[in-house]
Each structure stands twice: as C-alpha cells, then as structure tokens.
Simulated assay, not measured.
Amino acid sequence: MSGLCDGRVTVVTGAGRGLGRAHALAFAAAGAKVVVNDLGVGPDGAGGSPGPAQEVVEEIRKAGGEAVAHGGDVATADGAASLVATALDAYGRLDTLVNNAGFLRDRMLVNLGEEDWDAVVRVHLRGHFLPLRHAAAHWRAEAKAGRTPVARVVNTSSGAGLLGSVGQGNYSAAKAGILGLTLVAAAELGRYGVQVNAIAPAARTRMTQTAFADAMAAPDDPAAFDAMAPANVSPLVVWLGSAAAAGVTGRVFEAESGRITVMEGWRPGPTADKGARWTPEEAGETTLRLLAGAEPPRPAHGAS
C-alpha cells in the first residue's frame, strides 16, 4: 500500500465493475477506506444486483483494506443522500467523491428515443450532480463549523464529451455537461476546502468493448503491458483524490494507457471587432476570414 490516502474516506460510484472497480481497489491500496456504490445493472442500465458492489468490498477486505457497499441509486435525491450518510455512519467522515456511475444506450440521432435520451442523461449528469450536491452540503457545514476539509471530487467525463461521438448523442451531451458542472463546482466550492476536477478516460470496460472491440482487446501475452486496462487510469484518480493534489482544481485530464494529458478547453482563437454592428454579409465575410486562420476542429469519434 502506498499510504497516499491513509486516513481518508473515499466514495466511488459505479464501482462494481470496470473503471469504478479499479478506482475503488486503487484507493484501498493507497490506504483509503472505501464506500463502493453500484446498482449492479447491465451495460444499458437494465436489471440490478447487489453482487458486484459486495464482490469489490470483499476483494478489498481480503487485501487488508476497509470497505462497505452501497446499493442506492445515486441519480435520486434519497440515493445520493444515503451515499454520503453511509460514509459518515461507517467511518465518521468523507474526504473524496469519485463520480463514475453510468451506462450506454447508443442510437443515431434520428433513431434516439426520448426514453433513451432521458435515461442516459439521468444516470451520467444527474448521477454526478446529486452526490456532488449532498457531499458539498456536508463539506460546507464542516467548513462553517471551523473544520475546513481537504476534500476532493473527481468527475468522469469522456472523449465523447470533449469531441462528440457518432451514435452517442445522449452520452456525449451528458459527458459535456459534466465538464461544465466540474468548472462551476470548482469555482463555487473552493472556499469550503473542496477541489473538483474531471477525467476523460479511455479503457476497456463493458461500455467500450462493444463499440471498440479491436482497439480495447487485451494483449495475448499476459506479461505484456495491457494498455487498455482500467487500472491504468486509477493512479491519476487516486492522486487527484488525495491531499497531495493541493491547488489542482477546475481541470480536465485525459487518461489512457500510460498517457496523461491536460485538456485546455475552449480558448479564444482569431477574433475581429468592428466597433459597430455588422451587416450579415460583413459578418459572413469576416467569419470566413477568421476561420481561415483558426485551428481546424478535431473530428468527433466515429466521424468519417
């Protein structure tokens, strides 16, 4: 165990499988006590079972760590409130929240139904907002009581949220929304000792194996570096969730294989100011001239 998170209590949502499981195990290995949240649903959000969360808890305990399971729906107010309460009841504190829960219902836009839109936006975006709100309320109360926390939030976006992804309009919109939420939360909660960052990971999970089977395949040689293993993303998440990340907030990181990239987001490019109102023709001519000097956009994932 590294000891980087000794004495800290970490909540990880969607921690029964994939990235969430890897994060939970990595936090436990770093000394944290972990609340493992998972509904145990299928890749499309159907069904449910307490099994995956409990299996991760048992894995952590067998390795000498401490963990408890939480099976509530974090996209509901009651589920998010009970998530925070579980950490406080079990361990008396909450230091780090890792928002990770989600599933996919991929469709091209012309075939994307309202139910599939609402379900995916709900689990990803609402499922980030509600745990964050309840954790933030606790941390604000602590700060106002003179016990300013060293609190950390790590949100999970995606390359789909940064660039868009063909066939994933619902998922891309939700993941882009998480980026906006991250920036607002970082600005609002810093006064209470809370740092908020986001990652855009790429790894082999149930969600990616279907869409990117070849790219996500495990190596044939067991001794070879598994570039797409979820555990490759977790060290950055653990560091962001630790006290060692002091001063790092409002940032977005891509994490994949052995690569970490600081994403710089929307920044002003070429600009023109007439000092008066444009005519439509002038606006068009000027815009074309500005575009000629601008960096071309990166294509959406899956675009031909």
Rank of each mutant, 00 (worst) to 15 (best):
T10M: 14
G16A: 11
L19K: 10
L19I: 04
R21W: 10
N37R: 04
D38A: 06
L39Y: 03
G40Q: 01
G42H: 12
G48A: 12
P52R: 00
P52G: 00
P52M: 01
Q54C: 00
E55I: 04
E55T: 05
V56A: 10
E58K: 12
R61L: 08
V84E: 06
A87F: 13
G92D: 15
R93S: 14
T96F: 15
N99F: 00
N100W: 02
N100M: 07
N100Y: 03
A101Y: 11
A101G: 08
R107F: 13
L112G: 01
G113M: 01
G113V: 02
E115S: 14
D118E: 09
V120H: 07
V120K: 06
R126V: 12
H128N: 02
F129M: 06
L130K: 04
A136D: 05
A143N: 07
A145H: 05
R147T: 11
T148N: 09
V153F: 14
V154S: 14
S157K: 03
G161M: 03
L162A: 01
S165L: 01
S172D: 00
S172F: 00
A173M: 15
K175M: 07
A176W: 12
A185R: 07
L189V: 06
G193P: 06
I199T: 01
A203L: 04
T205R: 05
R206C: 01
T208Y: 03
A231W: 06
V233H: 00
V238R: 02
L240G: 10
L240R: 03
S242H: 09
A243G: 15
A245F: 09
A246C: 01
A255V: 06
R267E: 15
R267H: 15
A276W: 09
P280S: 10
E282R: 05
A283N: 11
G284E: 08
T286S: 12
T286Q: 13
L288A: 13
L288K: 09
R289K: 14
L290C: 12
L291E: 14
E295R: 15
P297M: 04
P299C: 10
A300Y: 02
